[in-house]
């Protein structure tokens, strides 16, 4: 991508300068175009799976596995995340020590907000996920931060997801060089091979989506971020999107990044933008 001279020389030079100024460690390859990326991403899955309507991808591998879908629909009759959602609602309404609550930080009493996360925070110049926003709210009201994989954090995000069901994902990448660089870094992460197995996210969840991995189908990346956190039957508990990132990175033999690390927040930013327009439907049940 980095070329000398030619018509793109100016664009590449600007990318290099932007990268250097932001201290990213590597240059931005060119001006990012998230919407063109999203259209291409959607088009890829539509061509690979012409019989699967785009909106079905919010159900992960159940979009393509009829037998597993029927089992899952049975489970959804009495969803195992139900108590977690109720706990999250209670936590959301509980007053902090200063008498305020999460409702003072989030609009509409927390209903219908999930689809806008992650968002780019122009003040910090960083990607803000829902989990980071929750801890930011707590800090402003004198409360200690919650661990990202704590029961409380998972309950809060589960309830907010539940209270946002049906809203189309609507993540924005503003026309801000820092936001575009963050998006591009997330995109780069998704397509970069790493670890002993030399695999990228796109290998399993793009090129091999629908293929078997042991007894299960690999799910598609399209729709992944719409339904987290999820109740994992395998673990018997709630799991965040970043916990899944963490597990995937380990599985390919790379040292994983921390939950809510800059790397994972930017990966979530890219992935969620790719699912823009699909309905938020968290929390969900997964194997």
């Amino acid at each position: 991508m980095i070329r000398r001279g030619g018509r793109r020389g100016g664009v590449v030079a600007a990318g290099l300068l932007t990268g250097a100024l932001l201290g990213l460690g590597f240059p931005a390859p060119a001006r990012a175009d998230p919407e063109a990326d999203r259209i291409g991403f959607r088009s890829y899955f539509q061509q690979r799976f012409p019989d699967v309507p785009a909106e079905a991808w919010i159900n992960g591998m159940y979009a393509i596995d009829e037998g597993a879908r029927q089992q899952w629909q049975e489970i959804e009759d009495f969803p195992p995340y139900e108590f977690t959602v109720e706990e999250g609602q209670a936590l959301f309404q509980d007053p902090f020590g200063d008498g305020r609550s999460y409702g003072d930080c989030f609009p509409d009493a927390g209903r219908g907000i999930r689809q806008r996360y992650p968002r780019f925070d122009s003040e910090t110049g960083e990607v803000e996920t829902l989990e980071v926003a929750i801890n930011g709210c707590r800090a402003r009201h004198g409360e200690p931060a919650l661990s990202y994989d704590s029961k409380e954090m998972l309950a809060l995000t589960a309830w907010i997801a539940y209270a946002s069901r049906g809203r189309p994902m609507a993540v924005e990448v503003p026309d801000d060089a820092r936001a575009l660089a963050a998006y591009e870094e997330g995109k780069r992460f998704y397509y970069t091979k790493r670890g002993r197995l030399d695999m990228a996210c796109v290998d399993c969840h793009g090129r091999y989506a629908g293929a078997f991995i042991r007894g299960d189908h690999l799910s598609a990346s399209l729709g992944h971020p719409t339904h987290f956190p999820v109740y994992r039957l395998k673990l018997g508990g709630m799991v965040s999107l970043h916990k899944r990132f963490h597990g995937c990175i380990r599985d390919v033999g790379a040292e994983p990044f921390d939950e809510q690390s800059r790397e994972f927040r930017r990966l979530e930013y890219f992935l969620t933008y790719m699912s823009n327009g699909l309905e938020a439907n968290g929390p969900a049940v997964r194997k």
Partner: peptide, 12 residues
């Protein structure tokens, strides 16, 4: 290798 190789995997 991945500095540039990743760009060849972009879904479109």
């Amino acid at each position: 290798r991945e500095e540039e190789a990743w760009q060849g995997r972009v879904l479109r």
